[in-house]
Design a binder for these strands. Structure first.
Lengths: 341, 341
DNA sequence: ATTCTTTATGCAAACGTTTGAGCAACAATC
DNA sequence: GATTGTTGCTCAAACGTTTGCATAAAGAAT
């Protein structure tokens, strides 16, 4: 319980504290014999350098901060949350840093938490989730030249260290492939308009149609919250309005797609025979439902790892200012889509 | 970027650093006028006390450590993980502590990570997940009187600060109710034998039968990994072996129950008409499948909060040694079970 | 024998706080 | 006018490290 300090080790080994310190850092100013002697004592006493004291003199604490809002829209945050944290934790660890996790009740308070961490010097840098991240905050951090990395995309700030996936391309590629499978009348079930992800995914859809020279039908674009219920309701309504003229539902999130799946089932439509369905994110549930949901998988964990890695590099390498890393996505084909004859 | 220190504030306010410090702690040794003057300067310079320096002198860093293994059995960890972290984070924050998150690749390395955090004094106390937590580790921490709280239950060590739910009672109550609904031949799909949760849940099942004086049929007890696939395979096999003689499947985890649901569907059995199904944990997917899965919900988030709260109390109150907090569970009735006529 | 290098170590200051002890200045008591 | 008490502040040590500089010892070069 009582802490063994460098002085205890020094006394026991009959050297000065500075010598012990230099043994720890494996300085070549210390003779082999002394090193051995000191190392033995350290082991015997179970000595571990006090990280706090170290941080104080080094002016660096070897820890990264992750700030996440934990608001009510749990549905969106959930699968993402797990993987992103795991990834970041893994990356952080690999770089021999610690991870401080701060959460905030709201997006607004998120900034306060961030600033608190920063100002009190509890972390050397920050990983921020882009979802709706406060623009002012990012501005401030940039201005102060404070190390940070963004996960995701913030519309207003493009020249910023970040790791992301290309939502536009992911959807565009998927839709293009779906068109080649024979689908033509594709409903797009988008998330809320004010999310950058929503806008990007929708754009991918439009670009694919444009390229394939398929006329764009505005009534097929629909907005809903990122939730199962919202997807269900919207899909049900769509199905009854346009039943003759749609053959696939593209959900901008798996939850939306799962809602649509349920709506199809309710209507007695066979999936994929009567209508195809595709989602986004490869939520765990996507593989558990029946038929399995075709979806687009983002390697979220890897994104977290990359972010941590990049942040450490920004912190440690004076000249490195960060970059934009785009992680490729992948379509996971399951039974909810098929080749149309 | 450059840090504003207490000395800068002192100089600017024409007082000594100690005075500034006492203003921060709102000591009554400082006059109202001086306090105001100093506070103004602090605000003007944007001063925030350096947490590291503070920790060094206080011998306390105001942060809690959470160590989690992130092994391959992602399925089990997943829904739990999210909520537990959110809860712990919320609790930690409310107590004005920070949260350090360390993950380990394996259960074995979990101990190393823990000891590292502890020895280097990066945290004031630990929250441990019980799943398979290393017994030796717990022994050591207890012996050293190092503050920690366990979430879940470790069989060997009962007199330990922890927050948990009562798995035995939860299952027993559920089974008792199910019996009263008319179910009688209940398959129990257990998790791996070496998990304490598995054993407890199974025991709840047996106690309920015993109390209702229903003969125990050993062939109805089956073990599987906590996974969807394992549940599916086991259930499929059971269904073909005992199709006349079972009317409900109790999955010790939602994934197992979902697998069983799928197996029933494959066989063309109607749920709940032909067979009832119940799970455990109220995984997000439980409400997304059709029919909705009846399940037992643990308020995981609340458990995390309680754990954080208790840990802080242990740290701060000399005399308080912690306690055992049992959080009640709740049955969530959905369509996969019904009153049998 | 003297000076110069080299090697191995110790000294002391610094990092930014907190806090017990000390001390002026003034008021209250006799 | 001396004594005591109170108020409001400052001084300096301490927390456990790291690191630039000084220095002692030993050997090499003159």
């Amino acid at each position: 319980m009582d802490q063994v300090t460098i002085k205890d080790v020094a006394k026991e080994a009959e050297v000065s504290p500075s010598t012990v310190s230099r043994v720890i850092s494996d300085s070549d100013q210390i003779s082999f014999q002394t090193k051995e002697k000191v190392k033995n004592v350290m082991k015997r006493l179970g000595y571990q350098p006090n990280a706090i004291a170290r941080s104080l003199v080094n002016q660096r604490c070897n820890s990264l901060g992750l700030v996440m809002a934990r608001p009510t829209d749990r549905a969106l945050a959930n699968p993402f949350f797990t993987d992103i944290i795991q990834g970041i934790a893994a990356g952080t660890q690999r770089e021999n840093y610690s991870l401080m996790l701060a959460t905030a009740e709201s997006y607004q308070r998120e900034s306060e938490e961030v600033l608190n961490l920063v100002k009190t010097r509890q972390v050397d840098g920050l990983i921020l989730m882009a979802s709706r991240t406060n623009g002012e905050l990012i501005n401030n951090l940039t201005k102060e030249n404070y190390p940070f990395v963004l996960i995701g995309r913030s519309q207003k700030y493009s020249e910023i260290p970040r790791v992301d996936n290309n939502n536009i391309k992911a959807v565009k590629d998927a839709v293009t492939t779906l068109l080649s499978l024979g689908y033509r009348d594709i409903v797009f079930l988008s998330g809320p308009k004010d999310f950058v992800v929503s806008q990007d995914r929708l754009q991918g859809y439009r670009e694919a149609l444009l390229e394939a020279e398929i006329p764009f039908r505005p009534e097929l674009i629909n907005y809903a919250d990122f939730s199962y219920e919202a997807g269900f309701k919207k899909a049900r309504q769509l199905f009854s309005n346009y039943q003759q003229n749609i053959d696939l539902v593209f959900g901008a999130d798996d939850l939306l797609a799962l809602g649509a799946l349920r709506a199809a089932e309710e209507r007695g439509w066979q999936v994929p025979e009567d209508i195809g369905i595709i989602g986004f994110n490869d939520t765990p549930a996507a593989s558990l439902v029946h038929p399995g949901l075709t979806t687009i998988k983002i390697p979220i964990k890897k994104m977290g790892e990359k972010a941590a890695q990049m942040l450490v590099k920004i912190i440690e390498e004076e000249s490195y200012q960060g970059e934009e890393i785009i992680i490729p996505t992948e379509i996971v084909w399951r039974e909810s889509t098929a080749q149309k004859e």
